[in-house]
Design a protein around this nucleic acid. Sequence first.
RNA 1: GCGCAGGUGGCAGAGUGGUCAAUUGCAUCAGACUGUAAAUCUGACGCCUUCGGGCUACGGAGGUUCGAAUCCUCCCCUGCGCA
Length: 452
Amino acid sequence: MFSILKKDTGSHARSGTLTTPGGRIVETPAYAIVGTHAEVRCLPPERMKDAKVQLIIANTYHLWQKLGEKLETFPGLHVEMNIPNTVIMTDSGGFQVFSLGFGREHGVGKVGGIRNSSVGTGRSPSPADRAALRSHPGESNIRRIPSSPGFREFPPDDFLIHDERNMRDKNLVRITEEGAYFMTDNGESFLGPKLSMEIQEKLGADIILAFDECTSPEHDYVYQKEALARTHRWAKICIDVHNRPKELSTHSRQWVDGSGERKKQQMLYGIVQGGIFEDLRKESSHYIGNLPFDGFAIGGSFGETQMRDVIGWSVSGLPEEKPRHLLGIGKIEDILNGVAEGVDTFDCVIPTREARHGGIWTHEGRFDAKKNPNKNSKEPIEAGCACPTCAHGMTRGMLFNMFHSKDIKAGEYATMHNIFFFNTFMSEVRGAIRNGMFEEFEKKARVKLLKQ
RNA sequence: GCGCAGGUGGCAGAGUGGUCAAUUGCAUCAGACUGUAAAUCUGACGCCUUCGGGCUACGGAGGUUCGAAUCCUCCCCUGCGCA
C-alpha cells in the first residue's frame, strides 16, 4: 500500500509511506542501497541500522547464478540477510541483459554519452531512422543463438571491420523473443520473464520487478522501438505469471492465507523503457501504467543531459497513486531531478562503489579520499556528520592513509559514511516536501552539494 | 685472499649485439565510476619539445663494432661459499 502524505505545489514531488504486504515500511522519497549478492559490499548486516538503511535492492540474475540448486531451499532474503524489518526489492535481471551484453559491446554504462547524432535530440526519429524502420522491420541488432530457429547474425561478419567484430565478441548475451541467453563460465544459461518471476518468488523480496530489456544509450531509434515492444510483451507475461493461480505455483511464498483472505506477499513493479525518445517513453509510460502492476520503475538508458526530460516523459502515463522507482540512478543532482518529476524511490551503486574507490559524499560536495590534498589532513570526513565513521573521529588524513596502506577497513568506513549520507539526504528531502519547503531545499542543495 | 653469483629507471625485477627510453609488477600522480562481471578500471610516470623530434641514461673508466644495457679489459661495490 502506498499513501501519499504530501504533494509539492511547485513540482511533481511527493512524500509518502510505502507499506509492503508483509507490513514493512519505507518512508519516501527513499534510496535503495544496492546489495546485489544479498549483501551490501563492505557493510556488515548488523550495521545497516546504523547506516539508516530502510531499503535494499538485490539482484535476481546474480543470486540465481550464485545459488544454483540452493535456490530451492533458500530461506528468503530477509532471513538470509538477517534484516527482518528492512524492505527488500529484487531487480529482475533485465539490467544484466544490457550490462553483460551491449554494455560490454558498446563499452558504455546506462548513462553513456550519446555518439549517434541522429539520436541526440531525443525528440523524434530522423528520416533515416524512419526509413530504416520501414525497410528492416525487426531487423535490428537482435542476435539469435545458433540453436534457436531462424538463427542469423546481424550485422553479418562481412559488414564489420576488425575492431567492431572484437567489440561484438565481448557481448555475452543473445536476445530472443523468449528472453536472453547469457554466456557464463559454466556454459549458457537462459533467463526470461517467466523464470525471472519464479526466481524472484523464491528469493522472497517485498518488491519484485518485471523482466525487461535494458537498452544501451548507443542503440538507435529502430532498435529502441523493437526492444520496447519486446519489453512490453514480457511485462504481460510477468503479470500473468505473478497472478497465476496458487495451484500452478511452484513456490508457496507468493501467497499468504491470512484471516480467510488470500493475499499476495510481493508487489510487482512494471518497467518503463524507450531510450531517450520522447514518443517511445510516453508510449511505454501509458502502456505499462495501464497494466495492473503494484508500482512502476523507470529503466533503461539516459543521456546525462536528457535525463530529467526522460524521467518526466516516463512518469507522464503512470497513475498518481502508485509508487515509482527510478532504476540505477543516482547522484545527488539526479535525485533532485527525479523527486521533482515525481519519483518516490531510487537505487544506485554510487554510494557504495564510490566509497570503496575513495569517493566520499558530503553536504559540501564530493571529494576523493585517496587523492593528494587529503594527505595528512586533520579535517573530519564531514564536519557535523553523525555517522559512525565521523563519530569515531575519522579524519580525511586517516582515511587517506588507510586507503594507501590497503587497509580493508577504509572501504568499510567510507561505505558507512556514504550510505548514511545518502539516507540522511533523503530524509532531508522528505522533511522538505512534508513541510512544503521543497523548492527552497532544492535550490540550496543544488548550490551546495553539487560543487564537488 | 681464492671461487661462484650479481650490480638496470623511486623499489622489485625482465632484457644478454640493432625493432630499447628499456617487458612486467609495486609505489606515485591524475581521471573515471549511475537497476555492481567494479575494494575496480583508464591514463601518465628520465629530461626538453614548436609534438616532427631532440637530449641524457642500464655501477665507473676505457675498448671492439656501422651500432652496446647486452661483447672485451681494468676498477669499484654487494651476496654466498672456501680459507
